[in-house]
Design a protein around this nucleic acid. Sequence first.
DNA 1: ACATTATATAAGCGAATAAATATATAAATA
DNA 2: TATTTATATATTTATTCGCTTATATAATGT
Lengths: 102, 102
Amino acid sequence: MVEYHKALSDKTRLRILALLKVEDLCVCELVEILQISQPAVSQHMRKLKNAKLVKERRSGQWVFYSLDGSMYPFFEKVLQSLPSASEEIKQLKASGLKVLCD
Amino acid sequence: MVEYHKALSDKTRLRILALLKVEDLCVCELVEILQISQPAVSQHMRKLKNAKLVKERRSGQWVFYSLDGSMYPFFEKVLQSLPSASEEIKQLKASGLKVLCD
DNA sequence: ACATTATATAAGCGAATAAATATATAAATA
DNA sequence: TATTTATATATTTATTCGCTTATATAATGT
């Protein structure tokens, strides 16, 4: 319970979850959108993964992350209350940096 | 949203909320149950209050805290998933340290 | 007014956390 | 096999957090 809330008590991780609500993303796409270093993204994803809020799936050289959190009955409502990030995903696609292989 | 989750990402504060689910408590009662210093309890209560998860009410020399959190649609479910603390309250009463003035 | 009890705030210390830099692993491709 | 691209881990440093001790404020009672 503590680990779950720790995972969500960071601005960047809440933003990552809002982005994953739109669609699955790989690390390099998150680096592009969030404008932080790749190791920083990886460490955030590890925390979210340890808290069982995301799942990872490898596709070729990329690792895609998707929302999970099915074990927390309130997580769904938390996700709903996050602001929409569809605009940021749109900009990623417009910039031509969306990974297409998936 | 970050502040809300930070407030809940501590074992002691989750325990305090579980205790308040049973009934309103004042600081000195929490000190007795939790076996930590009075300033430590006050500091936890300030964080919970800043996150709008508890309300305070003065009654004579005591300050009683009660659950709030009405602005978070998921908080109710989080509370439900906390373990029952009624046994600890029962022990407090048995020890004669329950504040009765209220 | 003074002493007692309850609570809050401030300062300081050790532990946990976040982020950057450097390095390692893994897959794809020439 | 060597190189490039993507991701993970390790290390270091700076910040944050929780707790304690000390002090301040507030209410009660003598």
